[in-house]
Design a protein around this nucleic acid. Structure first.
Lengths: 211, 211
DNA sequence: AAAGGCATACCGAACGGTAGGTATGTTTGC
DNA sequence: GCAAACATACCTACCGTTCGGTATGCCTTT
C-alpha cells in the first residue's frame, strides 16, 4: 500500500473524518468507537494506536472541524479585500453560502458537542468554548474594522454583535437540524445580514421579510 | 403513608422533576436511569412501574418542561393585556426575565435534547420539533396581532421573525451553557428586543449596545 | 362485617447486551 | 532487525431492562 511518509497517515485521517461525520450527526455520546472504525474502514487496533480514547479523538475532530472553517475563510480570500465594509459583506455572504449547503449534514460539530456535554465534562466543554469564542472574535474583528473605517449609523460594540451572530448561527443550525430542513437557515441568515448591515447607515428596508 | 388518590402520585412527579433537572444538565444519553432514581430518591422498581423506559420518561419530561413555559405565560397575564403591541413588549420582557434567571440551570431542555438526538431518534426529535414550532407559533401570533393593530415601520413576516427569535433564544442558551455565564443572555435578548421593536416605527437607536 | 379477590404501588436483585478499553500477536517500512 | 502500523480476541464495567416478589387498600360477595 502506498503511504504518504509526510504528515498524518491516511488511516488516522479517515478516523478523524469519520468522527466528524458521525458526531456531527449523532453527537458525542451516541457515537461509538466501533462505529467510527467501521465508518472509517479501520480496525480498533488502529484506532487505539492513534488515539488514547474516544474523548481524545473528539478533541482532535473538533480541531479538524475548526480547521475546515479557517480553510474556508482562507480560500475565500477574505483577508485580501481592501475595504473593511466589503470584507464584512463578504463574510456575511459566506455564512449564507456555507451553512445551508445542501450536500453537507446540517449542523456545527462544535455547537453540537458543546450543547451535549454542557456543564459536565469541562475538558470538551472548554475546548468548544475556546473555538466558539475564536469564531466570535474573528467576526468581531471584521466588525470593528468596518466600524473604524465607516462610521456606523448607530454605535455598537463589535464583541456584542459578534456574540449575537454566533448565537443566531448556532440556534439556527439547531432549529434546522430539528426540523430537518434548511429554509430556516436561509431566512435567519438573511435577517442577520440585513440587521448587521443596517448598523451601517444603509437606509433601505432592513427586513424585506415577507415571502 | 398518606397518598393522594387523585392526580399523579408523588414518586412519579419526583421522577419527572429529576429527569428534567438531569437531562437539562447532561442531555439524554448521559443521563442514567439509576441517576434519575437516585436524584428522585426512588427505586428502580418504581421507575419501571410508571414508565416503560428511558425514552418514554424523556418524552414525559419534555411535556413537563413545556408545561412550565406555558404556566409562566399564563401566570404573566400576557393574554389579558389589551393592546397587542404592549403584549409583544411584555413577551419580550418576559424572555429577558426568564432565561437569565440565576437560580435555574442555563438551558432549554427541548433544545438540548433536540440538538443531541438530531436526525437519529425521530421519536424524540419529532416531539422536540413540535414543541419548538409551538413556541414559534405562539410568538408569531403575538407578532401578527401587533402588526395588525400597529402598522409597522417595515413590513415583515411574523413567522419568519418568530423563527429568528427562536434561533436567537436557543443559540444564546447554547453559548451561555458553554461559557457558563449569563451575560451573553442579557446582551442577546436585549438586542433581540430592540430589533423586534425597531420593526415598529420606534425611530430611536435600535442598538444601544456599547457597554 | 368478614373473607376473598384483585389492582395499584413499590421494591431490588439479577440479566443480557454493549461499548470502551486492553493485551497480545502480526505485518510493513526503513 | 526494530519500530511503527496495524489486526484480533478478549475483558470488564456499566446501563437499560426484566422479573419475581411484597404491601396496601378497595371492591365484591355472602
Amino acid at each position: 500500500m502506498i503511504r504518504e511518509s509526510n504528515s498524518t497517515p491516511e488511516k488516522k485521517r479517515r478516523l478523524l473524518d469519520a468522527t466528524v461525520r458521525l458526531m456531527l450527526r449523532q453527537g458525542f455520546a451516541a457515537t461509538t468507537v466501533d462505529q467510527i472504525c467501521t465508518e472509517a474502514g479501520v480496525t480498533k487496533g488502529s484506532f487505539f494506536h492513534y488515539f488514547t480514547g474516544k474523548e481524545q479523538i473528539a478533541q482532535a475532530a473538533i480541531e479538524v472541524w475548526s480547521d475546515g472553517w479557517l480553510d474556508l475563510l482562507a480560500r475565500s480570500g477574505l483577508e485580501r479585500i481592501p475595504d473593511p465594509l466589503d470584507r464584512l459583506k463578504r463574510l456575511l455572504q459566506l455564512l449564507e453560502e456555507t451553512y445551508p449547503h445542501p450536500e453537507t449534514e446540517i449542523g456545527c460539530m462544535i455547537g453540537t458537542v458543546a450543547q451535549e456535554v454542557g456543564p459536565s465534562n469541562r475538558t470538551l466543554g472548554d475546548l468548544c468554548e475556546r473555538h466558539l469564542d475564536g469564531w466570535a472574535q474573528g467576526v468581531s474583528k471584521v466588525l470593528a474594522e468596518a466600524k473604524a473605517a465607516h462610521p456606523p449609523r448607530v454605535d455598537f460594540d463589535p464583541d456584542r454583535v459578534a456574540d449575537l451572530m454566533l448565537a443566531i448561527v448556532q440556534g439556527t443550525l439547531l432549529v434546522a437540524r430539528t426540523r430537518q430542513g434548511r429554509s430556516v437557515i436561509d431566512n435567519n441568515l438573511r435577517h442577520c445580514r440585513e440587521y448587521v448591515l443596517s448598523l451601517f447607515g444603509d437606509p433601505t428596508d432592513p427586513v424585506s421579510a415577507t415571502r
